[in-house]
């Protein structure tokens, strides 16, 4: 025992010797030149005026100010072939907004009319010769069958509930979803805020079956929870996945960097029609 205690006494100063300086340092990284691309982000919603954000990608270590090109013309092609120009009318205020309002550089005039199966096309070009195009299809909304909750057996501030959302996947394979849960009354202001939960799903392993999607114990009594289920194209699913993978690779030595996979040819980005169903429940 005496020997062990001597050993400990000897070991402590050795441990103290272990360098405790910074293991993270600023360095200079000379990056080669980078040719910027058009970045297009457009989510059409039935009943809402079409809008989209056109920006450009920039060298990583350049200024933080978003680059919004002013020489871009945008044309939306409706399912019946009608060409709808979207005017350059940026809401720069949204760039500094904290309420969840999204920035758009171009916007149309009339609310969108869409039926499941409708195909929309997008054409974006600038005066430098850059030309981006994309196509998307409006998918049929998938109904949320039910939502439910269950409290844990704790009391006081530790009493929390988990929340379940149930829906059924159609028989055909190849369906992709995004499920968001928002807290608060289901008014636009609350639904624009950051969600409590936001996950992407696919039916690769559960084709044609019931989905039950849960959370951890995180909701309190009297919370109002709104579940929004988006039925998305594979392109939107993959775009989100590749964005996540690319972000995670920056700072994770185990991650392999990913290219960005969208559905915009001639640029970077995503074009889709949001097909949503929504259910609200108050946790009692």
């Amino acid at each position: 025992m005496k020997f062990i205690s001597n050993l400990t006494v000897l070991a402590l100063p050795l441990l103290a010797l272990a360098g405790c300086g910074k293991l993270q340092n600023d360095i200079d990284v000379p990056l080669p030149t980078y040719a910027s691309e058009l970045v297009v982000e457009c989510y059409l919603e039935p009943g809402k005026v079409p809008s989209l954000a056109v920006t450009t990608s920039v060298p990583y270590l350049s200024s933080v100010i978003p680059q919004v090109p002013t020489d871009v013309t945008v044309t939306l092609t409706m399912p019946n072939g009608t060409l709808v120009p979207l005017a350059f009318s940026p809401n720069y205020k949204a760039l500094t907004d904290t309420t969840g309002e999204k920035f758009h550089s171009h916007i149309g005039r009339d609310p969108l009319v869409a039926r499941p199966g409708d195909v929309f096309k997008l054409d974006v070009r600038d005066t430098k010769g850059r030309h981006a195009t994309s196509t998307t299809t409006y998918l049929a909304p998938i109904a949320i069958d039910s939502v439910e909750y269950k409290f844990n057996d704790k009391s006081g501030s530790e009493r929390k509930a988990y929340f379940l959302t149930n829906f059924r996947d159609p028989a055909a394979p190849g369906d992709y979803y995004r499920l968001q849960l928002h807290k608060g009354d289901p008014i636009p202001k609350n639904l624009r805020k950051g969600p409590e939960s936001d996950i992407s799903l696919e039916d690769r392993l559960l084709n044609g079956q019931n989905f039950t999607v849960g959370t951890s114990y995180r909701f309190n009594a009297n919370d109002t929870v709104t579940a929004t289920l988006y039925h998305t194209e594979y392109a939107m699913f993959r775009f989100r996945q590749s964005v996540r993978d690319a972000r995670n690779a920056n700072g994770n030595p185990f991650a392999q960097p990913s290219a960005i996979y969208g559905n915009v040819q001639g640029g970077v980005g995503i074009f889709g029609v949001l097909s949503a169903t929504r259910v609200t429940k108050v946790i009692r």
Partner: peptide, 28 residues
């Protein structure tokens, strides 16, 4: 592999991820 470029993604309505969301790196 270091990213040479970056761009911003706003994502769909209701997906706010706070002020100035993380940039998306481009790895050519």
């Amino acid at each position: 592999t270091l990213p040479l470029g970056r761009f911003g993604v706003q994502d769909i309505p209701g997906s706010s991820v706070g002020i100035d969301p993380r940039p998306v790196p481009i790895y050519p």
